[in-house]
Structures are given as C-alpha cells and as structure tokens.
Nucleic acid binder design. Structure first.
Length: 576
RNA sequence: GCCCCAGUAGCUCAGUAGGAUAGAGCGACGGUUUCCUAAACCGUAGGUCACAGGUUCAAGUCCUGUCUGGGGUACCA
C-alpha cells in the first residue's frame, strides 16, 4: 500500500474523529494530484463532507486544517477555497515511493478491489465466413486488456470466445464454394484459410444480387445443415477448419488468448429448447407464419422473433442458449459481452428475454458496447469487401516500423530486426485503438492515424528503451545502494507523484472498463520522464549519491511502464 | 416515423462521481544535439466545449428542446 492510500486512511480517521456524525460509507475521500505544484502535491475538495454536514465547504477546510494533527511527513497544509492541499516531505515521498516500487516490481499496482468478483468475459466472437478486420482488432484488444486490468485489480476472469460457426451467413460462403470452388483449397492456392473462405462470401453476395434463386438455395442448405445432412456437414467442417487455421495465426500475432471456446453450433439447440419451453409457459407465442415471437413492446422493444417458421434458429436463439450455458459451467457472478454498439438493441432484447424466462442471473449479464470503426469512405462491410484487413494492417505497420528501426539502429538486423519491428508496429496499432474511449466511434484514416511519434505506443516504448539503456550502463548503482537524499527537483517530484497514482489509475480503468485511462496515464508518465531525462543527467550528474537516486527513480519508471504496457498487451523492448 | 449513441483547437483524441486557470498529439511557425537513445525536449499561434434554455454555490460534465452525424428498428449476425 503506497503512501497515498496510507495518508487517505489517516485522513479518514481524523475526519471521523473531528466530525463523529460521519460514518464510514458516508463519504469518499479521494486524494488527487494538485493542479499547481507550488500549492500542493496532493489534495482534496471538501464538498462531500460539506454536503453531509450541510455546511459551507470553506468552513470545513478551515476547521480541518486546524483540527487535524498531521503526520510528520506532511510538511505544509495549504487551504485554497474549498480545497485542502498538502505538501509532502519530499525526501520521504520519494524514498517511500521508489523503494516501494523497486521492492514490489511488476506486482506494484495490484489491488483487492475486485475480490470476490468472478467475471466471464466474452470477446472476439468472429463469424467463420470471413477474415477479421479492424473492428475485430478493436474487439480483441479491448477483451484482452480489460481481462488484464480486471485480473490486476483482483478479479477472477474467464476469457471465452463464442465462435459464430453456423447460420445463414456461413451457408453463403459454403454455397458459393460448392458452386464455384472448383476444388481449390487454401493449400493449393497458398491463401490464408480465413481469407480464402471470405472471398467466397463476397462472391456470393455479388452473384446473389443478380440471381434471386441463390437466396432460396442458401435457405435450403441451412435447413439441410440443421437436419444433419452428411454432405453439407462435411463441407461445413472442412471450410471452418480452414478458417480456424487462419484465425489462430491472427490471434497469436495479436496476443489474444482464451480459456474456453464455445461454438454456436454446439449451443443453438439448447437455445431452441429454452424458447420452446417458453412457448409452453406462454412467455411467447406462435404467429400465423409459424414463427415463435415474444412481445416486448411493453419495454419499448417491440415484437421479436425467437425462432424461424421453418424451425431453424437465428442469432438470438443461440445467444439464449449460450447465456445459460455459461452460468451452468462456470461459477461466475458477472457475464460480460464485448460486442460492437450496432448490437445494442440485440442485447437489450436478449437480456429482457432472459429476465422474462425467469433466469435469476439475467441481471448479471452486461453488454460492454464499443464504438464502430469507420474508414474515410464510411462503414466497413465484410460482405462488400470494403474493410481494413487485420493481417494486412499488422504487416503494413511492421513494414513501416522496420524502416524506422533501420534509420536509427544500424546494428539491429536479422531476426532481431524482425522481432523489434513487429513489436513496435503492433504497439502503434494497439495503442492507437486503446487510447480512445471504448464507447467512442473511431474514424480511421490509415495514413494519418498511425504514427510512431507523439502520443503513441512507440513513444512509450522508447521511454522504456531509454531507461533500459541507462540501467545497462549504470554498473555499480544497484537497488541496495540507492540513496535518495539528493533527489528533489521539480522534474523528479513530478515523476514520483505520477508513479504514486498508478494503482488508482488501474482501479479506475478496471472499474469503468476503460483502458484509455491507463493508456493516457502512461503517456503522461513517459512525458514526465522524458522531460526529466532531457533536463538532467542521470549517469553523469557529477555526484554519486545523486546518480544513485536517479538510477533508482529511472528503474521504477521502467517497471511501471513495462507493467502498464503489459496490461495493454504491448511489449516493452529493452532496445529500439 | 420510432429507439439508442455522439458533437471539445484545422485534424485525431483526453478531460476520471458536477468542482481548482478546458489539456495532449498531429499539422503550421520558430528553437535545442562535441554530453546517458533527437521515436526526444522547449516555445508561438489555434477554443463562445454544436446551438438555445434550465437545475446548482459551481456545468464540457446533469435535465429539456433544436441542429448535425452515426447506429438500430430483418426469418443478417
């Protein structure tokens, strides 16, 4: 527990002593970085307390500043209107923080915030009729990062992928292949499996515009599939296996991992059973077309088909089944769906249906809706082939990064060059996506969006590489020798205060399901360190004790950056 | 039509339970390298936080309306 938490606890006790009417849960006390360094390191506003006591905040500030007996590490208390700011004993602040981080290492920032929270996180959830594009990248990155954040905050997380491997859309690529495939395969064409299949999906959509009969044929094919027709099933298995091979490559490169993979083909029947049971219990009804429909107009959601007239299931049918399966198979108290905002309505309907059907866990389901990714020419559409392909994008970024590495580090070559270029390219992509608030739409312009300078992943990586370089050269200055007495200039203090904030940032990022907070925090930390690095010499400071302290400070910055980037799924290189 | 979401600097975005003087990066202009990684650092210009009301001691943040953009409203997922 770092000094900020300790001091917060101390303040709470003191405030309760002074105002005995205030109870534990009555108020928050959140120490924040003071805006003006001259007037405090950390501080808080007395609005909450004032409201509770129905008094003027300024009077509270006044009273508290006089009545609290402050611990010795508080050098000065500064009142500013309704705010109470504190200036810490610098030496104490620095030593506590830096030595604490050096001791904890990558464990720094772990918390018990999430104790008892058992979360199932569904993300990725691709369809097996097309390769993944930039929208899927955003989904995968959010899922991975949020899982890391929640685990860091003390939650237990199960990561699952629900693969949409069946349905009318899958039959479209199957039919196209059956009609025009000419026994081509990914192997004999040298194409990545998911791309191979995706081409047939696009081909179908094109030809279906000219030939209406194709739609009928697809419907027949789906029916056959659900009846278990041998030939259809075989084609389906064959084509899906191609897609999975392709997906696995993409996942591996992106760093996406799952504890469990569900297939819609394995769960849609359960969904059907539940719907039919609902029909028996009069939760829904059969209309004149034979469709099973639920009326949610009371909730403003209209009427919704749950099962087709021909008995085949649709999207929501399988989602109903899978929702139940998760709670049956895992001991969880929260089920999170990371799915794009275009499906907001679908999830409103789904959760409402689950409630109506009487599942007590329905309220533990949560749709984490994230914004769409747009290209300059509009929305990406797989069926029309107007997308930014995930693999191509990663290749492109790697290629760009390679050029940058070559420019700067001539001695990096061969396999090492490959690795570093990949790491830097991915970092640019991941950071670009994650620094944007999840719920916001992204306007993606490949030329303008991705860069290696400024507020980017590589900028933070670069900061880490600088620290690593210093540490390699620091020689005799080990942790044990660290002497903090000479530290205390403005740049050093700024870094330390930032480092102190890391645990809070992690919790608020996790709590709000918002990795962009962490991303922006890391930028801030890197900026402060680069400013310090520019203004002050670490190894050539001319004073052994000073150098010792600065090396230790640098090391702690390296630890926090590395751990922060890890949570974002980004590797922090030692060199670049 | 109805429902949902968004609108902050030329562009891309932050802005943490309503709280301290609205912040970055890119782009523009100007500067910094015999010295630990210049993917860096510093400075200048650029804002009626879409608009109009309202609530509040306090509004970019909450409420109402308008405008603009996006998504949804399918036997697609």
């Amino acid at each position: 527990m770092n000094i900020i938490y300790k001091f917060e606890d101390y303040l709470k006790k003191e405030i309760k002593r002074i105002y005995p009417d205030i109870r534990d849960d009555d108020f928050f006390l959140n120490l924040e970085l003071s805006p003006d360094t001259e007037e405090g390191d950390f501080g808080f506003g007395c609005f909450g307390i004032a409201k509770l006591l129905k008094k003027n905040p300024q009077d509270i500030t006044e009273n508290l500043s006089e009545s609290i007996s402050f611990p010795p590490y508080i050098e000065k208390v500064i009142k500013r209107g309704p705010y109470l700011n504190f200036i810490f004993d610098k030496r104490f602040l620095i030593e506590e923080t830096v030595s604490g981080i050096l001791k904890e290492g990558s464990l720094y920032g772990e918390s018990k915030w999430g104790e008892g929270k058992r979360i199932l996180m569904e993300y990725s959830s691709p369809n097996t009729n097309k390769p993944q594009h930039l929208g899927h990248i955003r989904n995968n990155l959010l899922g991975m990062t949020l899982s890391n954040l929640l685990e860091k905050a003390g939650c237990k997380v199960v990561k699952i992928n629900l693969i949409n491997d069946r349905g009318i859309h899958i039959c479209k690529s199957m039919l196209a292949y059956k009609l025009w495939g000419n026994s081509k395969t990914p192997e004999n064409t040298g194409k990545k499996g998911d791309n191979f299949v995706g081409d047939y999906y696009v081909m179908f959509e094109k030809k279906a515009k000219e030939d209406e009969k194709l739609i009928v044929q697809v419907q027949e094919m789906l029916k056959k599939w659900e009846e278990g027709d041998k030939e259809t099933i075989e084609l389906w298995k064959r084509m899906n296996s191609w897609v999975y091979e392709g997906f696995n490559e993409t996942y591996k490169r992106l760093g996406a991992e799952f504890d469990k993979i569900y297939y819609e083909s394995e769960t849609y029947k359960l969904g059907k059973e539940i719907v039919l049971k609902g029909l028996e219990d009069s939760m829904c009804y059969k209309n004149d077309k034979g469709e099973i429909v639920i009326d949610l107009s009371e909730k403003g959601l209209g009427e919704k088909v749950l099962l087709r007239g021909d008995g085949t299931s649709i999207y929501i049918t399988q989602d109903i089944g899978n929702a139940k399966l998760r709670f049956d198979e895992y001991d969880i108290n929260s089920s999170i769906y990371i799915v794009a905002s275009e499906q907001n309505y679908h999830f409103q309907v789904l959760f409402e249906v689950l409630r109506r059907f009487g599942f007590e866990w329905a309220d533990q389901c949560y749709h984490l809706s994230y914004g769409m990714v747009y290209l300059p020419e509009g929305k990406m559409k797989s069926r029309e082939g107007t997308v930014v392909d995930a693999d191509n994008l990663m290749d492109e970024l790697k290629f760009m990064a390679e050029a940058e590495v070559k420019k700067r580090a001539r001695d990096i070559e061969g396999e090492q060059l490959e690795n570093i270029s990949e790491i830097i390219g991915l970092s640019a992509l991941k950071f670009y996506v994650l620094k944007i608030h999840p719920s916001k739409d992204i306007n993606f312009n490949p030329v303008e969006s991705l860069s290696f300078e400024g507020d980017t992943g590589p900028y933070i990586q670069y900061t880490h590489a600088r620290v690593s370089s210093l540490l390699r050269k620091s020689g005799m200055y080990g942790d044990d020798l660290a002497i903090f007495t000479k530290l205390g200039n403005k740049e050093e203090i700024n870094i330390v205060k930032n480092l102190l904030n890391f645990p809070k940032i992690l919790i608020s990022s996790a709590e709000n399901y918002n990795p962009s907070r962490l991303a922006n925090y890391l930028l801030e930390l890197a900026k402060r360190y680069n400013k310090f690095y520019h203004d002050h010499s670490v190894l050539n400071s001319g004073d052994e004790e000073l150098t010792s302290g600065r090396v230790a400070l640098s090391k702690s910055v390296g630890i926090v950056i590395k751990e922060g980037l890890r949570i974002l799924g980004i590797v922090a290189p030692e060199r670049m």
